[in-house]
Write a protein that binds this DNA or RNA. Structure first.
Length: 246
DNA sequence: AATGGCCCCAACCGCCGTTTC
DNA sequence: AGAAACGGCGGTTGGGGCCAT
């Protein structure tokens, strides 16, 4: 009975043994089918709980530690732009989860905004150029790749895809890689890439809007070129995706 | 030392869209 | 085609830690 099943499910904080067990089975089975994973692993947790624990805490690609000034700035501006779209904002902050962004905003920004002194308390943005933000983004991405056994990095996908293309070139006259032929189609990375693609057009107009808004700001300390950062990221992604699929 | 208030964040809940069968 | 299962998202809660009194 469902009642009995519910009764035996554990809730509340995770134990170290549970974490270890979960990591083991996610490594084994991948980040999917959480209900089955929960059953097979013997964890007395719901699939949903397992997924949450992994996504928000155990995933090795997560960045721990306090938010940087750059991240803080990005959260503030993107929230201004998109509202409570935490997961969307979190996607612009590699290694941060929607939960983390949400909690951070609630505890750090709301009060400041209520008192109306955000600009006083937060940032001297003048030294944070768009290039700087992008540079930080890339550095962190590289670091994570080297510290994790999971294959979460775009760099990794690019590398692997290049290899696939090279092998494909050997085998085909035209050297054109049909990506479906290599089982790339259903990878979680592609799903993420697809998300990005679908967001690019939105980002482009968002960036325009944001740049207008920022350039009209009277506060020089808050004039950070986030709009250009979004453009830059888009261009970067386009370059990446060209090398990936062409 | 005790206590009350506040902050932070992990975890849960409910809803909804998507995928699978 | 439709029902069930699954996954993702945003909102909320509860407990632990810190600090002032």
């Amino acid at each position: 009975m469902d009642f009995k099943k519910e009764e035996t499910l554990r809730r509340g904080p995770w134990l170290e043994e549970e974490d270890e067990q979960l990591v083991k089975f996610v490594t084994l089975l991948g980040e999917r089918r959480w209900d089955s994973l929960a059953r097979v692993s013997g964890l007395k947790r719901s699939g949903k709980s397992c997924r949450l624990r992994w996504m928000n805490y155990l995933n090795p690609s997560l960045k721990r530690g306090p938010m940087s000034q750059e991240e803080e700035t990005i959260i503030f501006h993107l929230h201004d732009l998109w509202g409570n779209k935490w997961s969307k904002i979190a996607r612009r902050l590699p290694g941060r989860t929607d939960n983390e962004v949400k909690n951070y905003y609630r505890t750090h920004f709301r009060k400041k905004l209520e008192t109306g002194n955000y600009a006083d308390k937060i940032i001297d943005c003048s030294r944070n150029t768009a290039e700087g933000l992008l540079c930080n983004y890339k550095e962190t991405e590289t670091t994570w790749t080297s510290t994790t056994t999971q294959e979460h990095s775009f760099d990794r996908i690019a590398k692997e895809s290049k290899q696939i293309n090279m092998e494909s070139d050997k085998e085909t006259n035209g050297g054109i890689c049909e990506r479906e032929s290599f089982g790339v189609m259903n990878s979680p990375y592609e799903n993420r890439i697809s998300d990005w693609i679908s967001e690019i057009s939105t980002d482009q107009s968002d960036a325009n809007l944001l740049e207008d808004r920022i350039s009209s700001s009277s506060d020089n300390n808050i004039k950070i070129n986030v709009g250009s950062w979004l453009f830059q990221e888009t261009r970067d992604f386009e370059e990446f995706s060209c090398s990936l699929w062409s």
